[in-house]
Simulated scan of single mutants.
Amino acid sequence: MTAEREVAIRPLTRPGDLGWVAMKHGELYASELGFGTDFEAFVARVVADHHDEQGGGPQAAWIAEVDGMRAGSVFCVRADERTAKLRLLIVDPAARGLGLGSLLVSEALRFATDAGYKAMTLWTIDKLGPARHIYEKLGFELAACAPHTDYGSGLVDETWTRRL
Rank of each mutant, 00 (worst) to 15 (best):
A84G: 09
G34C: 13
A131Y: 02
G16S: 06
R82L: 15
A64W: 08
P93G: 08
A30H: 15
R96K: 00
L128E: 03
K85D: 10
D92A: 03
W123H: 13
D17A: 05
L128M: 10
A84L: 07
G26E: 00
H51E: 13
P58E: 15
T13V: 15
V91Q: 03
Q59F: 10
R162Y: 04
L109W: 05
R5S: 14
W160E: 06
Q59N: 10
L89F: 01
F35I: 12
L33D: 09
A71L: 02
G26T: 06
P147V: 02
R110G: 06
P130M: 05
E141T: 14
K24L: 03
G129K: 04
M120H: 06
F42C: 12
L12A: 14
D67R: 11
F39I: 14
F75I: 03
V43N: 01
G152A: 07
G139F: 04
G139S: 05
L98W: 05
L98V: 05
M120N: 07
I9H: 12
E4A: 15
F39G: 10
G19Y: 08
T161D: 09
A8H: 11
G129F: 06
Y135A: 02
A8M: 13
P15F: 11
T83D: 05
R10W: 02
A115S: 05
E27V: 04
G55H: 12
I134A: 07
E4F: 11
L122T: 02
M1D: 11
R70D: 06
G154A: 10
L28C: 05
E158H: 08
L138S: 06
A112L: 03
T124P: 09
W62V: 06
R87F: 01
A3G: 12
L142W: 04
S102Y: 03
H148W: 02
D17P: 00
R14E: 15
G36A: 12
D38N: 13
G36N: 13
R110H: 08
K24R: 15
P58M: 14
E158Q: 14
A108L: 04
G99R: 05
A22S: 11
Q54S: 13
G34H: 14
A41R: 13
A144F: 04
S31D: 14
D17C: 11
E6Y: 09
P11I: 05
D92F: 04
V105L: 08
R82F: 01
R87A: 01
V66G: 03
R163Q: 13
T37P: 10
A146Y: 02
D92Y: 01
V91K: 04
H50A: 13
G26S: 13
G34W: 13
A22F: 03
R110Y: 02
G99Y: 00
C145F: 00
F39P: 09
R87P: 07
V7H: 05
D52Q: 14
D114P: 01
A22H: 02
P11E: 11
L89M: 12
Y151M: 08
L89V: 10
T149C: 10
R14N: 12
L155W: 04
S106I: 00
L89E: 05
V74K: 01
G129D: 14
A119G: 08
L100M: 01
A119N: 11
A146C: 03
V47Q: 02
E136L: 06
E107D: 04
E32H: 09
H51W: 12
P130Y: 05
E81K: 10
V46I: 15
S31A: 15
T113W: 08
A108E: 08
A44R: 10
A3K: 14
D67K: 10
